[in-house]
Simulated assay, not measured.
Amino acid sequence: MEVDPTWNSAFIKGCSKCRLHRVQHFNFKVQTSHSQRRFHLFRVPAASSSPNPLTSGNRGIDRVKCKYCKKDLAAATANGTTGLRQHLGRCIPYKTLIKPPTQKKIHFPSKDKHELEEHWEFDQQLIRRALVEMIIVDELPFSFVEKEGFKKDWKLHKRILNFCPVTSHKGEHMAESISNCLLHWNLDKVFTITIDNASSNDVTVRELSKQLNMWRTNIMDGKHLHVRCMTHILNLIVQEGLKEIDASVKCVRQMVRYVRGSSARTRSFKKCCEVQKVGCAKTLLLDVPTRWNSTYAMLNTAQNFEKAFNRFDFFDENFKTYLATHVCEDGSVVGTLECDD
């Protein structure tokens, strides 16, 4: 008995209470085409004395036969489909015919009908060379890779490869540590290295370039291996510009450092803010010299507490003494708080 492949799922769902139809529905899902049939459905006549009305008389008992190992299996509704799926997992002739999935090939029709049709396969090296050629021939700026059309459906991956202790900041030792990290992760191709302008970093890049030459993976002989850190350069520019208001910045920095120096001073400063009705709920921030935006954050937050700083000496008598006597990092003294600060 073969299942009629013209039955549709709507008809099967309409009579889902019929056990026989559910058995045939399973076979309809399995026998989608002659080439994909895995089981053959047949009916074994049942004795007329059977108490089950679905198997009595001419209805019979539904069973299936595996197409590959020819084993008979129960196909009644009570048996379900799990046993059939498990049988496919155990059927050795069936598993030998399963082919592993392979990468699909893009088919391009030949322009000349007389020529043989060819198949194109993806090659990473050819694609990379074509991209470089496009940039050089069309004189495209490197920033075009940041455009939406180029980055469509692309995801930038960022990975932290390793944290390793460095006992010496000499360029040779740091280059050795980075080389060991690359070998550990089986990486031998490095396009660029972005670091700041310290002299030891110049030695590091030079030694790494020699190592990449030994591995024969140094792109363009390392001419563009060292990329200067743009944020570090920007920080140097901003720090140079802040020298114009250096006295005021140092005064604010010292006041913030004093308040944050202990929990008792912090409580006194909060009490001063309540008395002066300072409604700002932000926390005082202390900047760090390597991040210019932290100086902006410190000044931006401190200006909200100007009234509290002006009256803080009434809550902490050592406040003005600290400003007048404490020596800054550059050896200077801030002095008393001025209105211009």
Rank of each mutant, 00 (worst) to 15 (best):
S9E: 15
F11W: 11
I12C: 13
G14R: 10
C15H: 14
C18T: 08
R22T: 10
R22A: 12
R22M: 15
N27M: 12
F28R: 02
T32E: 11
S33G: 15
F42T: 14
S48D: 15
S49Y: 14
S49E: 15
P51K: 04
N52T: 13
P53R: 06
S56M: 13
N58P: 12
N58W: 11
R59Q: 10
G60A: 08
C66A: 08
K70S: 14
D72I: 14
A74S: 11
G80I: 08
T82D: 11
G83H: 12
R85V: 13
R85S: 13
L88E: 08
C91H: 03
P100K: 02
Q103C: 05
H107N: 09
F108N: 04
P109H: 01
P109K: 04
K113C: 05
K113F: 03
K113V: 10
E115K: 06
L116D: 03
E117K: 04
E118T: 12
E118A: 08
Q125S: 12
L126I: 10
I127D: 01
R129M: 06
R129V: 06
A130L: 07
A130Q: 08
A130T: 10
E133L: 06
M134A: 12
V137T: 11
E139R: 13
F144N: 04
V145F: 15
E148L: 13
G149V: 12
K158S: 11
R159M: 15
N162D: 14
T167I: 15
E172K: 06
H173K: 14
A175D: 07
C181H: 02
L183S: 15
H184A: 15
W185A: 09
N186M: 08
L187V: 13
I193H: 01
D196V: 11
N197Y: 03
A198D: 10
S199Q: 01
N201P: 05
N201V: 05
R206W: 02
S209Q: 07
Q211P: 00
Q211K: 12
L212F: 13
W215V: 03
W215T: 02
T217V: 03
N218L: 14
I219Q: 02
I219W: 01
M220N: 12
D221K: 05
D221T: 09
L225G: 05
L225N: 04
H226G: 04
V227L: 14
R228E: 01
H232A: 05
H232C: 03
I237E: 03
Q239Y: 02
Q239F: 02
G241Q: 05
I245A: 15
I245F: 15
D246R: 08
V249S: 09
V249F: 07
V252C: 13
R253T: 15
V259H: 06
R265N: 07
F269C: 01
C272Y: 00
K277D: 06
C280E: 09
C280V: 10
A281V: 12
A281Q: 15
K282C: 05
T283M: 04
L284G: 08
P289R: 01
R291V: 11
R291G: 11
W292I: 08
S294A: 15
A297W: 07
T301Q: 06
A302F: 03
Q303F: 05
E306C: 02
D316W: 01
A324E: 14
E329R: 01
E329P: 00
E329Q: 09
D330A: 04
S332F: 04
T336C: 09
C339F: 02
C339L: 10
C339E: 11
C339R: 07
